[in-house]
Simulated scan of single mutants.
Amino acid sequence: MVNFIALSNTLGSGYDIDVGTRTAEANMLTLRDCIDFSDLREEEILAIAECEHIPLLTALEEGESMVHTPRGRKRIAVMIKSQAEICERTGNTVHAQHLRRVHDAFINRFGKMVARP
């Protein structure tokens, strides 16, 4: 059995990830494996993808690279906060609140390690 990931992009809510299993002869890394190996949480990766308008796997790679430096962590925090502000201005207050919670959780985890301006 090999896990698989199905992505669907629903309007206004980013990506939904559907995890399942199927039989396969060869083992491979799944998107879920990559997320689990990352130092970022799934919501943070989704926020990077949304902000940068890039595919989820590319956001995972970019975010994983950035999270290991103070400057990169600052950039991630700014991305998430900026995306929340954009959502608020465009009337998507529910998603803006979600992104603020993601930002707050990110700052709580990396706050002392986020570069100061």
Rank of each mutant, 00 (worst) to 15 (best):
A84V: 01
G63I: 04
H68D: 08
A115P: 08
D104M: 13
A24D: 14
E64N: 15
M79P: 03
R100L: 09
V67W: 01
L99S: 04
H95K: 15
A96T: 03
G20A: 14
I48N: 00
C51D: 15
L57C: 10
I86C: 05
N3V: 11
H98M: 07
T90W: 03
E44A: 02
T58D: 15
L57M: 13
R89Y: 02
T90R: 15
A115C: 11
R89K: 14
A105T: 07
I107R: 01
A6S: 12
D36T: 06
E25L: 14
E25F: 09
A77P: 00
N108M: 10
G91K: 14
N92L: 12
C51I: 04
R109C: 13
D104E: 14
M28Q: 11
I107M: 07
D33V: 05
T58N: 14
T30Q: 13
K74Y: 02
I54Y: 02
V19S: 09
E62H: 10
Y15W: 14
V67M: 04
G72Q: 08
V102M: 00
R116M: 13
I54Q: 03
M1D: 07
D36C: 04
V78G: 12
R101P: 08
A47Q: 02
A26H: 13
L7D: 02
M66C: 07
